[in-house]
Nucleic acid binder design. Structure first.
Lengths: 188, 188
DNA sequence: TAATATATAGAACGATCTGTCCATATCAAT
DNA sequence: ATTGATATGGACAGATCGTTCTATATATTA
């Protein structure tokens, strides 16, 4: 299983990075969780930073896929999907292993070092905004990007509030604000 | 100068924690910046975590004081002050040493450890919301707390966007959204 | 069966970090 | 002038971390 070992390492890394942070999670802990040897890790990744980057890459793909699937399953109309974004986040906040956004946390930890990690985080946020912009365009917004930026701000604000205040209800509060913004952008 | 040494240590710690993060900033670096000896630090604080906590306490006081002063100097009407919150944040984002919110970053780094730090961050966000709620009440909102929560979400969203995307303009975008919410809450 | 690639466990290394200890120096107050 | 509190600089211990290395085992393929 040549590919599988690599995936197991990324799996374990994602779980631990999410639960305890990047610096606080040691290599040995990842190896124990993945059930692999140290040399195997360094065969697949040239450093811990490289593993972090690979993990964030997978996180980005999975997160956006899960988000879009949840949104589509929750609402039929384009306008409804814009608000379903917040319901999907509410479900996320309610999970017991919720520890905030892994990209926000990564940028916080690697303050000015590690440009690739910063770039990966910015890319994730950019792609999510692009997805929201698509939804806004389908809903008939005449400036989809502007609405997407504003809803993105509310989503990120809800994430950090849920994390800091341990208040999953921030998703609903953000949804209330989003409803007003959507109403204003699309007309009653 | 018995009090001053302590203050110098907190000053240096704040600067370095903001610039490089909490874990990445070693004790020795703080000592060099503050120009004090190691034993002096451990006379005033019983551990690095204790110093972090003291620094965050000072940050909380100074930040809220600066914010309220900036808001009051920027607008005369209560309604104008609600929007001036975002202008004050715009000035902050433009500073070259802007590295995001120190409380958001602290919670990101100390994922589940260090309850006192988590509590300090939650307290800071709570006090800011309380201040916004005061402004909203003065502006005549009939549910000031609800409006304060929503504007707080936009502020936090703007902070992390400015940090991740290195886009100070997120303050203006949040302000646009806030204007719509304020309009809806206070009536045209 | 033999050969090749890959995984294993864990020792070892160098670097870094927090926190303690010590002997010396400074300075204000009696 | 002497005392007592406080600061200094640096050595030190103890722990942890990322990374490299060695030697052994396993499994696939020719």
């Amino acid at each position: 299983m040549p590919q599988s070992k690599r995936e197991h390492l990324i799996d374990a890394a994602l779980t631990l990075f999410n639960g305890y942070g990047y610096n606080a999670t040691g290599i040995d802990r990842i190896l124990a969780e993945a059930g692999t040897a140290k040399m195997t890790l360094y065969k697949h990744f040239k450093s811990k930073d490289d593993l972090i980057l690979a993990a964030l890459r997978r996180r980005d793909e999975e997160f956006r896929l899960r988000l879009s699937r949840a949104v589509e399953s929750m609402a039929d109309t384009p306008r409804g999907r814009l608000l379903a974004l917040f319901d999907a986040h509410a479900d996320w906040f309610d999970k017991e292993n919720f520890r905030g956004c892994m990209f926000i946390n990564a940028v916080a930890e690697f303050a000015n070092l590690s440009e690739p990690i910063q770039a990966m985080a910015a890319e994730n946020k950019r792609l999510i905004r692009a997805y929201i912009s698509e939804l806004a365009a389908e809903a008939g917004a005449n400036d989809p990007d502007a609405l997407a930026v504003e809803l993105g701000l509310l989503l990120n604000g809800a994430i950090v509030s849920a994390q800091i205040d341990r208040s999953p209800e921030s998703a609903g509060q953000a949804r209330n604000a989003a409803a007003v913004l959507v109403e204003a952008a699309l007309g009653g």
